[in-house]
Structure formats: C-alpha cells, structure tokens
Simulated assay, not measured.
Amino acid sequence: MNVSRNKIAEEHGDFFPVSPKKDWSVGLLRIIWALVIFTGGAVLGLSVSAQYNQYLKTQTTELFFPTKMYTTNCGKEKLSIKNFVHPTYLLHDMTDEELFWRATLVPRIEVYPYNRKPKVAFMFLTRGPLPFAPLWDRFFRGHEGLFSVYVHALPQFNLNVSEASAFYGRQIPSEEVSWGSISLVDAEKRLLANALLDFSNERFVLLSESCIPVYDFPTIYKYLVNSKHSFVESYDEDSPQGRGRYSRHMYPNIKLYHWRKGSQWFELHRDLAINIVTDYQYYLIFSKYCKPSCYPDEHYIPTYSNMFHGELSANRTITWVDWSRDGPHPATYGNQNITEEFIQKIRNNKSLCTYNSELTSICYLFARKFAPEALDLLLDLTSKMINF
C-alpha cells in the first residue's frame, strides 16, 4: 500500500505533498502588498503634513500681517485726513459715551495740516418735520463750505427733503426727548458732539423747527466767526422760576450763588462746546437733582458756563423770543403777525447789547416762535428785505 502511494506521488509530483510547505509566490505577493501599503501611507502622511504646514503658514501670516489691515485697507479703506477732519456721513453706531470721547479729542499741534475755513454748525433740535426748511435752504444757498447742518429728531422720524436741500442726509443718531427733562440736555450734547467731529466747525448754534434767521447768511456768518465770545444767557433770578428750582442736594459742588438761568437757545465757540461735552461731573448732578420741574435745559449750560467759563460768554442770547404773555411757552406768530414792520422790530428793537465788548444795536440774529402757516409770507418778506 505504501509502495503504491509513493509511486503515485512520483508520477503526479507535489499535488498531494506529504508535508505542506509555503509557496514562494505567496511570500512575494505579501511583500508586494506590504510595499504598496507602506508607499500609500507615506504619500498620505506627506500630504497631511503639507496641508498642516500650509495652514500653519497661513495662520502665522494672518497673525503678523492681517489681510484686513494690509490688503483691504490699502485698497479700499485708506485712512485720510479728509475723512478724519470732515466726516461725509453722519450715521454711526457709537454710543453717547463713545461719541463724546471721540468728539472731545483735541490736537496738540495748533497749525492745521489742511486749508481750514471756519464753518458755522446749525443744529436743529426738533421732534419731527422742519416746516421752514425751504426758508433755510434759501438762506444757505451759495454759501457751501461755510456751514454745516445737523438735525436731532425722534429716532423713528425720517426727514423727507430733496437731495438738493441742505438738510438732506443731515440727521444724526438720536434718542427719545421729553420736554423739561435731562433728555433735552442729552440731545443738545449729542448735537454738539456730532458737530465737533467736523474739525472745521468753529461756531455752534442751537435752533428749533420754529426758528428763522432775521439777517442774511454773510451778516450772520461774519457776526459769529468774528466774535470773541460765545452767546450763552446766564442770570441770577430770585424767584420760584429761578432760585426756586435749585436743589440743596447739589451742595457743595453747586452752591445757590452758582445757580443760573438762561435761554436754551445758545451759540458756542468750539472751545466752550468741547468743555460742555467733556463735562460729566456737573451733568450727573443735574441728572440726579434737576427734576421734574427744574427744567435742566434752562439751567445746566447757564450754570456750568458761568461757574467755569464765564469770561468766554457775552452773557446773552442771539435768538429773539416773546415771553411777554403768561405761560410756560413763548408766543407763537402766524400769518396775521408776519409783516415787514414786525421783522424790522425784531432786527432793530431799540435795545443795546455788547459785541466784542462794544455796544451794538444788532443783538438778535434769529427769532422764534413761528407757526408753519407763516412760511409763504416769510419767504416773500425775506426776499424783499433780507436779500436771500
């Protein structure tokens, strides 16, 4: 039996080996697969390493050479002296705190690095429409570059004027305002701060929607720009409407003899405007203790300016108003009142005041309070007697 098996094995080779052995081809195949796997792993590793190095290089470059700073700004958002000293657009997202800080930056170098022509900032504090915008547009026409316009209205109000109007695009970011509250002072300081962003603004006039000019632009511009003083009315009144509004809680920072009253409608030189926007200490005292019938808009600036900057003010207002009638509001004038004699009476009311420490009969440059219905008559009168 064994003999026959050996014989069969010799005849048919190793098809049925008695002891199994590794085939040399199987080993070769395994070696090839190992090389393939190794090569694939090496390629994959190098690829991942290259991507990581590229990422690291990109992050390092962005850290030390930011794209926004060195690419975007260089191409599209360059800083320029023009945009800094004369902002084109009034819209911004600054808080009042940020705005006031930005507005009170003062350059240490007195010489301007550009051709600065002093401008007058006309600041309108209103709740809504400006019925006398056509009159003011006629007043401003032809004097571009010598004035700026700023409008503080209710936040939800959009002033609808043509692109040709001096009021177009001149609304500033605003907040709600309540009559007789500290919010009126907030609005005044907000107007001043926005106007201070333009370094060419030298004089700052606060006006209402019921105000009109009673002289032409060249006369008013020359009067304000050449004045050595600001025009802030500030006086001591021993009455319930004067000293009676003082709160003893203001002591000792504000004493009774410091307390002053005056017209809300002021005109300021740039230096005094910066000081008022800068002040927080006395503003905080007023915000705490000048309410609800204290009327901080009639006392804060008159008191503050008298305490610290009295020498900078002519101590009078340049806005005429009629308080001869009883009540908390001045008289309002409509169509039946608008005559040439009436305007002349405002311009030459036989009173004398000081201008640059000398007596003058020109005391009022603006007047209020006029009803919207008076617009057409005022336009007719101003073209005849005020030359605009």
Score class of each variant (00 low, 15 high):
338 I>F: 04
60 T>W: 08
43 V>G: 12
301 I>E: 00
366 F>K: 08
283 Y>M: 00
371 A>E: 14
130 L>V: 07
321 V>F: 10
187 A>P: 01
308 F>E: 06
123 M>K: 03
365 L>I: 14
198 D>P: 04
160 N>W: 00
128 G>W: 02
364 Y>A: 06
179 W>G: 06
318 I>G: 03
147 F>G: 10
112 Y>K: 15
224 L>N: 09
159 L>Q: 06
102 R>M: 12
372 P>W: 10
194 N>E: 10
12 H>L: 13
13 G>H: 13
326 D>P: 06
296 P>V: 00
358 E>W: 02
250 M>V: 09
311 E>C: 01
119 K>Q: 15
224 L>W: 05
103 A>H: 06
102 R>A: 15
231 F>Q: 01
46 L>T: 12
377 L>M: 10
65 F>S: 09
157 F>V: 10
217 F>K: 14
164 A>I: 11
16 F>Y: 09
369 K>N: 03
34 A>V: 09
32 I>F: 13
206 L>F: 12
169 G>N: 08
51 Q>W: 14
241 Q>S: 15
257 Y>D: 11
39 T>R: 14
73 N>A: 11
25 S>P: 00
183 S>Y: 02
150 Y>L: 13
83 N>R: 08
288 K>T: 02
209 E>V: 03
126 T>C: 11
163 E>R: 14
57 K>C: 07
116 R>K: 13
141 R>H: 15
324 S>E: 13
95 T>E: 07
163 E>K: 12
280 Y>I: 12
203 R>V: 05
212 I>W: 05
295 Y>P: 00
338 I>K: 02
273 A>L: 00
53 N>Q: 14
359 L>W: 13
303 T>V: 03
227 S>G: 08
235 Y>G: 12
220 I>S: 11
146 L>P: 01
257 Y>A: 03
205 V>N: 01
94 M>W: 09
158 N>D: 01
84 F>N: 09
157 F>G: 05
120 V>S: 03
369 K>L: 02
243 R>M: 05
266 F>Q: 11
373 E>S: 14
173 P>M: 05
219 T>W: 05
282 Y>H: 11
153 A>F: 01
46 L>W: 14
223 Y>I: 04
162 S>P: 01
300 Y>E: 00
10 E>V: 08
271 D>V: 09
180 G>F: 06
75 G>C: 06
74 C>F: 04
290 C>F: 06
198 D>Y: 04
341 E>S: 14
178 S>H: 06
289 Y>L: 05
282 Y>L: 01
248 R>P: 07
15 F>H: 02
44 L>E: 13
130 L>K: 03
370 F>E: 06
268 L>S: 00
44 L>G: 13
101 W>V: 09
382 T>V: 13
180 G>K: 08
74 C>I: 10
287 S>E: 15
172 I>A: 04
338 I>E: 09
11 E>V: 08
128 G>H: 02
210 S>A: 10
217 F>Q: 11
270 R>L: 07
